[in-house]
Design a protein around this nucleic acid. Structure first.
Lengths: 257, 257
DNA sequence: GTATTTTTTTGATATGGATCAAAGCCGCGT
DNA sequence: ACGCGGCTTTGATCCATATCAAAAAAATAC
């Protein structure tokens, strides 16, 4: 991962962000509140973690984890979004997920990375060496349990995605995606549906969408246009979608009979 | 999960099988060696675990985990095979994975099961209540680390499967599957390829294969026939495939250019 | 503000895999 | 051995989505 050398990197250890802790406040970069994964950690535990962390800023498009390379680091994202993907030698790409503020990254078994990770915008994150994380585990077994929870949640998402990729039609995939993105943005109270006319911000290109949903950009575009024609959504601009009828979208997504 | 009442169940706690421990010997049911996930546990640790386990035998076709139901148990499979799947209301099914001897099952985040599990043949397993497993964690933090390893490995497989479902052609899916099944059966030394002319036992119907690979049974059958015509494999009977040219199969699977 | 490039949408056509249909094949019970 | 029912394979056709192409819109540069 020679590319890491090009990064603006602060070697001085600073407090890492495991959910915008210590005070659950708004993000210093964008003002939004990023709920994270390790809220249960105490000040002392965070201070312990901080001793082995480096804070790094990545330019958009930077591939900072490369599939097949030695898995040397774990990451905790503070700000920005990351796409995780696998590629075939002929260029076909499958995005396996997205990571955002508060998320852990690098949960790969084995010696080498199972996927690549690329900054979608300007990304700030904390980096740990694998070895130092192992040392942290010795002192902080609770972190291991946290990570188990994270991994299990990732597995649930992966299984949903397999159902989507293996068995859903293009329209169903788009509808499923819109709703799952609303969940991701915490627009769904208690795991329910987002409110009618919710505005969904999509910091994704159509290409990302296609590579995430196993479609082509043309099919993504056509499916969105069709949902718009049918009055399910409105598309004021490329990166915003208004969910006019979330209930019906949900029925499409789950193929309710 | 009312179906559990129909099971032949021994309530007396007995030694669970976390990798055919304590002595890594051959399976008492089928004679084969089942490598498992918790080989590092000591006798004492195993004894501790055993106190909260129940041994259960399932008939083929028994659905013992149901998607959406309350996730009450963890399972450790001793013998037999299990398919894990998600379904849509109209009957479309996606198999998300298979579990066999030594595997853990029930690694789902949240209150409810994210998938269903069904015995493919006669299955023997050990069952823990979720609560008792949590208690075990307190005494055996090492188990948590083991499970984290398991979950991470599952994630790697899930990501591979997403690439397969989202971006590979039918032939590539079949080739990928054959090789991954060979890995599963430990026919691949050091993560390499299986030997030429290896005999692959497939305890799966074509329907299972189709639902795992996101295809129809007809396409599965046609793709296998084509690989046979091309001299890649031989199919002496429905449940056995001979890998005549694993290297070429691998090139097909990974879409080498 | 205008030119240039990139991304997105829309249209026309092609195709891989699905669907519909029928013929083997195999296991099982009698 | 025979007949039956459920898999599996093969064949014919169809269709959802890919591919190819071009216009429209948005982003970027000048």
């Amino acid at each position: 991962m020679a590319i890491l050398n090009e990064l603006s990197e602060f070697r001085r250890p600073i407090a890492i962000n495991l959910a915008n802790r210590p005070t659950p406040s708004n993000c210093e970069d964008c003002g939004a509140r990023h709920n994270g994964l390790c809220e249960a950690l105490t000040e002392d535990e965070l201070a312990f973690l901080a001793r082995s962390a480096q804070r790094i800023t990545l330019a958009p498009g930077t591939v900072f984890v490369e599939e097949g390379e030695k898995a040397a680091y774990f990451y905790n994202i503070n700000h920005g979004n990351v796409r995780l993907f696998k590629s075939l030698p002929d260029g076909r790409r499958q995005i396996t997920g997205f990571s955002g503020p508060g998320h852990f990254l690098g949960l790969a078994a084995g010696e080498n990375n199972a996927f690549s990770a690329e900054a979608m915008d300007s990304v700030k994150l904390c980096r740990f060496s694998r070895a130092s994380l192992m040392a942290v585990f010795e002192e902080l077994p609770v972190l291991e349990r946290k990570l188990l929870g994270v991994a299990m949640h990732e597995l649930v998402l992966a299984q949903q995605q397999m159902l989507l990729l293996g068995r859903k039609t293009a329209i169903e995939r788009i509808a499923s995606f819109l709703l799952s993105w609303a969940v991701r943005l915490e627009m769904c109270p208690a795991g329910g549906l987002p409110a009618a006319n919710s505005v969904l911000k999509l910091p994704l290109s159509r290409t990302d969408l296609a590579d995430y949903l196993g479609l082509t950009i043309e099919t993504v575009s056509r499916s969105l246009s069709q949902l718009k024609r049918d009055g399910m959504i409105d598309i004021p601009n490329i990166h915003e979608i208004i969910l006019l009828r979330p209930r019906t979208l949900s029925e499409i997504a789950e193929a309710a009979v």
